[in-house]
């Protein structure tokens, strides 16, 4: 199915390989990092970019036919919703008052007017 002589297939394959690399690094970060805020950063930035690149590879592979447009729609939806969900999780964690990791140096949300109670870290 994959034809390395075809430049379009080759570009799609390279893009998908980069996406897989970001996916696996994101999973590693999710397992290894110390608290929920750090894990959010690994678990959403890397995995969103990885998914984005893999679906972009599908789009490059097929061009703008039925499958490519479905991949584009899926890609757009991931790019919109995944950061939104991450933001909501971070906000809920801060509102519930989870403490920051002891190595964290700054918490600009605490004490801002958005913060209802001014929960310090």
């Amino acid at each position: 199915m994959i034809d390395f002589g075809n430049p379009v297939h080759l570009i799609a394959f390279v893009v998908m390989a980069i996406g897989l690399f970001f996916d696996i690094v994101g999973c590693l970060g999710l397992v290894r990092l110390p608290d929920v805020y750090n894990r959010l950063q690994a678990g959403t930035k890397c995995v969103t970019l990885g998914t984005f690149l893999i679906l972009l590879g599908v789009l490059i592979r097929f061009g703008f036919d039925a499958m490519g447009v479905k991949a584009l729609l899926c890609l757009w939806f991931i790019a919109m919703t995944s950061p939104t969900a991450a933001h909501a999780i971070a906000r809920a964690a801060h509102k519930a008052g989870f403490p920051l990791w002891k190595g964290s140096v700054v918490d600009r949300y605490a004490g801002s007017k958005e913060d209802p109670k001014g929960v310090a870290s």
């Binding site: 996406g19 996916d23 929920v36 998914t51 679906l55 995944s82 964690a93």
Partner: peptide, 26 residues
């Protein structure tokens, strides 16, 4: 350790399922 960690993990697994479905389609 916290509920939000679990929720984040479930969210990430869902995102990876999309990738998995695209690859299984191939």
């Amino acid at each position: 350790p916290t509920l939000l960690d679990r929720l984040l993990g479930v969210n990430v697994i869902g995102t990876k399922t999309i990738v998995l479905l695209a690859l299984i389609g191939f």
